[in-house]
Amino acid sequence: MSSISSIALSGINVAQQRLQAAANNIANAATPGYQRQRVESVAGPGGVSGVITREAESRPGLYVEDAVEVLAATRAFEANLLVLRAEDRMLGSLFDAFA
């Protein structure tokens, strides 16, 4: 797998983690003692990874923050898919040139 693919796939994985954390926050917002989750992106060789952290103090009712997180994660997911699609087209053109 090329480095472009691995970087895009790592971005997709982090976007998925962000979606899951936001959904978990929304689903458990009314649960007593629940600590909200947040996914921090950490850059590394070959892409990014997500580190799940829990907020120290409970801050209930942050549905807007979670909704924005869902939208941002969705856009990140789409952007990384476009990178994979562009790479696929470029490789196809490269192979066509040598055929």
Rank of each mutant, 00 (worst) to 15 (best):
M1H: 08
S2Y: 02
S2C: 02
S2R: 01
I4L: 02
S5H: 03
S6F: 05
S6Q: 14
I7T: 04
I7N: 01
I7F: 00
I7S: 00
I7D: 00
I7M: 03
A8M: 03
A8N: 08
S10K: 04
G11N: 01
G11F: 03
V14S: 00
A15W: 02
Q16Y: 11
Q17S: 04
Q17L: 07
Q17R: 00
R18S: 11
L19H: 13
A21H: 02
A23Y: 11
A23C: 04
A23D: 05
N24P: 03
N24K: 10
N25R: 06
N28Y: 04
N28H: 06
A29K: 08
A30N: 14
T31G: 02
P32K: 02
P32S: 09
G33H: 07
Y34G: 06
Q35G: 07
Q35I: 02
Q35H: 11
Q37T: 06
Q37K: 10
R38G: 06
E40I: 13
S41E: 15
S41C: 03
A43L: 13
A43H: 12
G44Y: 01
G44W: 05
G44T: 05
G44D: 05
P45I: 08
G47Y: 13
G47R: 02
V48T: 06
V48P: 01
S49I: 07
S49R: 14
S49W: 02
V51Q: 14
V51E: 11
V51W: 05
R54F: 07
R54W: 09
E55R: 03
E57Y: 10
E57D: 14
R59H: 13
R59Y: 12
R59K: 13
L62W: 04
Y63L: 15
Y63E: 11
V64K: 02
E65C: 06
A67V: 11
A67W: 09
V68N: 13
V68A: 05
V68K: 08
E69C: 06
E69K: 09
V70P: 05
L71T: 14
E78C: 10
A79C: 11
N80H: 09
L82R: 14
L82S: 15
L82I: 11
L82A: 15
V83Q: 03
R85C: 01
R85G: 06
A86D: 12
A86E: 13
A86K: 06
E87V: 02
E87S: 06
L91C: 09
L94Q: 04
L94F: 03
F95V: 15
D96E: 07
F98V: 10
